[in-house]
Simulated scan of single mutants.
Amino acid sequence: MKRRDFVQGTLQVGVAISVFGIHSCKPKQKEKEEVVTKEEVKTAPMLKLSLAQWSIHRMIKEEGMDPYMFASKAKEWGFTGLEYVNQLYENEPNTKGFSEEAMQHFVQRSKAESKKHGLENLIIMIDHEGDLSAADEMERKAAVENHFKWVDAAAELGCHSVRVNLMGSKVAEEWTTASVDGLTQLSNYAKTKNINVIVENHGGFSSHAQMLVDVIKQVDLPNCGTLPDFGNFCVKREDGSYFSSACIEEYDRYQGIQELMPYAKAVSAKSHDFDQEGNETNTDYARMMKIVSDAGYTGYVGVEYEGDELGEAEGILATKELLLKVTGQSM
């Protein structure tokens, strides 16, 4: 199954002139306008970059890397925020089965590593804990309750959110009703822990931005929002699965991000392949970051490399460099 706020050390870079619309000065007003421009740059929102752990899933799953090296690798590559993926700990001896004791091990070890490297814990991305949009009420309730331990863990780690999937029914009206119910149950529990529940466009109806927005509006809770992902807009695949075959129907990604951003509590800059100039070949990053900034978003932007052409470390750094480039930042 495919998955789903970084800069060198603790540096948080200013918002780009090209993205945020600061204009050049006319010669006759140079002295006055230079002062204004400096002030605008000084007071502009800050762009912060985090690393999604899925970016190193092959290192962990195929090369045997200890998932608890996540913080050290993120620090090495210049990130300041961490987005954990629960499924990457499923086979760890000390966390296998996610018992109460295992969850405490995950929390204590992750907290120690993030503190050691001076990084901020942001999100736990939850997979494989049941379908929050299941048509069957009891199945849906069980899935909701399976998520509770991760909400608790996120709170203990100091995260602001858990990311969930809306998988289950493949009948549109039924999916909407079930999604509203599942999200409402989980968000009501999460608000007691001061945790947000955020939904990623992650296949099926959740990748149809208008349908996902409708669900968020119906839930109507301040701690329930979205995690817009630049690349996850496949609504339908050949074999009817969420991830395992060719996409035959895709929602417009730029329209989708624009529709999801008003409810965003995080953003995922998904990348796959790059051209010789370092641009992502599937997504216009400058256009996407303009949409993000126009929405007034000031949180972390998460780097999530998922390509096959570059190695994971190389792909992560290529994505980082592209984000810095399109926002006018330097390394």
Results as ranks from 00 to 15, higher is better:
Glu76Ala: 14
Met1Glu: 07
Asn94Thr: 09
Phe6Asp: 03
Glu63Arg: 07
Ala318Met: 07
Ser99Trp: 14
Glu62Asn: 15
Leu132Val: 08
Ser293Tyr: 08
Glu249Asp: 15
Val303Phe: 09
Thr281Trp: 04
Glu277Trp: 00
His105Gly: 05
Gln104Glu: 15
Arg253Phe: 01
Ala16Cys: 12
Gln276Leu: 11
Glu312Cys: 09
Ser330His: 13
Val164Tyr: 03
Ala155His: 14
Cys234Thr: 10
Ser169Tyr: 02
Trp175Cys: 09
Pro93Cys: 13
Val303Thr: 12
Glu39Thr: 13
Cys25Ala: 15
Val303Cys: 15
Tyr84His: 10
Gln329Thr: 03
Glu277Val: 07
Lys170Glu: 10
His202Lys: 08
Glu92Gln: 12
Thr184Asn: 04
Thr176His: 14
Ser18Gln: 10
Asn146Tyr: 08
Pro27Glu: 10
Ser187Pro: 00
Leu221Phe: 06
Ser133Leu: 04
Lys42Val: 03
Gly203Tyr: 00
Glu304Val: 05
Lys2Gly: 13
Lys111Val: 05
Val164Pro: 00
Leu317Lys: 06
Leu82Glu: 06
Gln29Asp: 13
Glu314Tyr: 00
Gly240Leu: 08
Leu324Pro: 01
Tyr300Val: 01
Ala269Gly: 07
Asp5Leu: 13
Lys73Gly: 00
Ala269Phe: 09
Lys111Asn: 06
Lys141His: 12
Asp127Arg: 10
Ser330Arg: 12
Pro45Ser: 12
Leu322Trp: 00
Glu120Ser: 07
